[in-house]
């Protein structure tokens, strides 16, 4: 065998080692980010989830004012944790539209009665269709939508106090 070929296995192992080491040093980010940022919100028209809030459709996002689209559910524990901070955002004048995923109306009403209701509108999605439209892979997630119906930002997981100013900033940028 040629001399260089003898060292080939060691060289290949070197590559393997480098791959492993990078994998360890910079562990992969396991969240599946939406690829829809910067693209227009797809068409949707969801039925009303609770009696005291109107239903939600794409047309509600094209009045020129940036809004939040929050995907939540009564069965989702982190959604309880983020409720106060969504309320903070609502108190700061942000319009938040919610979509209740795979949920029953009485359960949603109970959830809102217990944890507060920061939503201007709430749509009901029984088959997670809106999540596939948005490129969302879990609950809760919050999207910043600008006044023309463009998706500008995706927040994965519950909103914590430190995220509130950042989200307000994103809304401002979406003006």
């Amino acid at each position: 065998m040629k001399h260089w070929a003898i060292w080939l296995p060691l060289a290949l192992f070197g590559v393997l080692f480098a791959v492993f080491a990078t994998g360890l040093i910079a562990p992969a980010d396991r969240t599946i980010a939406s690829q829809m940022i910067g693209k227009p919100l797809p068409q949707f028209d969801l039925p009303q989830a609770v009696p005291d809030r109107p239903a939600l459709a794409r047309t509600n996002f094209t009045d020129g004012k940036p809004k939040l689209l929050n995907v939540f559910a009564s069965w989702c524990v982190p959604c309880i944790a983020e409720a106060p901070y969504l309320q903070q955002l609502a108190d700061a004048g942000v319009e938040i539209n919610g979509v209740a995923i795979r949920d029953r109306s009485p359960d949603v009403q109970q959830f809102l009665a217990r944890n507060g209701n920061p939503y201007a509108r709430i749509g009901a999605d029984d088959v997670s269709k809106i999540q596939f439209d948005l490129g969302s892979s879990g609950v809760p997630e919050t999207f910043v939508i600008d006044g023309q119906g463009m998706i500008r930002y995706q927040h994965i997981g519950d909103i914590r106090p430190e995220h509130v100013p950042m989200i307000l900033q994103k809304l401002k940028e979406a003006q």
Partner: peptide, 12 residues
Amino acid sequence: GGALALFGLRAS
């Protein structure tokens, strides 16, 4: 790494 290096040195 050690074994492959040894291989490189001795295989010839």
